[in-house]
């Protein structure tokens, strides 16, 4: 298991994010992708226009291998968990074709893979010990599972997880 960070030099439109995710999920070594970016609010949350709908054109539902995914952030970086590094060249090619303004790819450790004390307090020992290990570190501690994690089914009956992580 290795983790890589794909860092395009621009914030991505929903269309580009959709293409990137579709191409990445076609690779056999990709296990999960965490999308990190700027949150796009549904309504104006501050100031005289508070409560007015924002209708941001990039906050929309995209299609990833047939699964509708609601993008709630403007994607700025991707943390991708890979089984091994055999398809790094293909990832590089995908990036080259989509991010003509430049990008960085870094191999490292970007998410936690162990349960924390908070997890044990929040969910209980039994639940933490039983849970799917690939879900650890997938989302922000305060985000809700239903709205932030999507499971993309794979041909080989294995599943891909995808999550959103917003950052202000």
């Amino acid at each position: 298991m290795i983790e890589i960070e794909v860092f395009p030099h621009r914030y991505l439109k929903a269309k580009t994010t959709e293409r990137f995710l579709n191409e990445i999920y076609s690779l056999s070594t990709v296990d999960r992708v965490i999308i990190h970016g700027q949150p796009l609010p549904k309504t104006v949350y501050y100031g005289p226009a508070r409560g007015t709908p924002v209708n941001h054109s990039e906050r929309k539902i995209i299609d990833v291998h047939g699964v509708p995914v609601e993008l709630t952030v403007m994607a700025g970086r991707f943390w991708i968990t890979l089984k091994d590094d055999s398809e790094m060249d293909k990832i590089e090619e995908v990036c080259k074709s989509l991010f003509h303004y430049g990008y960085n790819i870094k191999v490292g450790k970007f998410t936690r893979d162990k349960s924390t004390v908070t997890d044990y307090i929040k969910y209980g020992e039994m639940l933490v010990n039983m849970m799917d290990r690939t879900l650890i570190g997938l989302t922000d501690p305060r985000s809700k599972y239903e709205s932030s994690v999507k499971i993309i089914p794979k041909d080989s009956k294995k599943e891909h997880a995808e999550s959103f992580s917003g950052h202000i």
Binding site: H9, R10, L40, H56
Partner: peptide, 26 residues
């Protein structure tokens, strides 16, 4: 931007515009 100004220190978007969560300009 009168309120919600976040964006000056972020990368630009694909069209070269500064990020604006409220999308005041397109």
């Amino acid at each position: 931007r009168g309120a919600t100004v976040h964006g000056h220190s972020l990368r630009l978007d694909e069209n070269g515009l500064m990020f604006d969560a409220l999308q005041r300009y397109v």
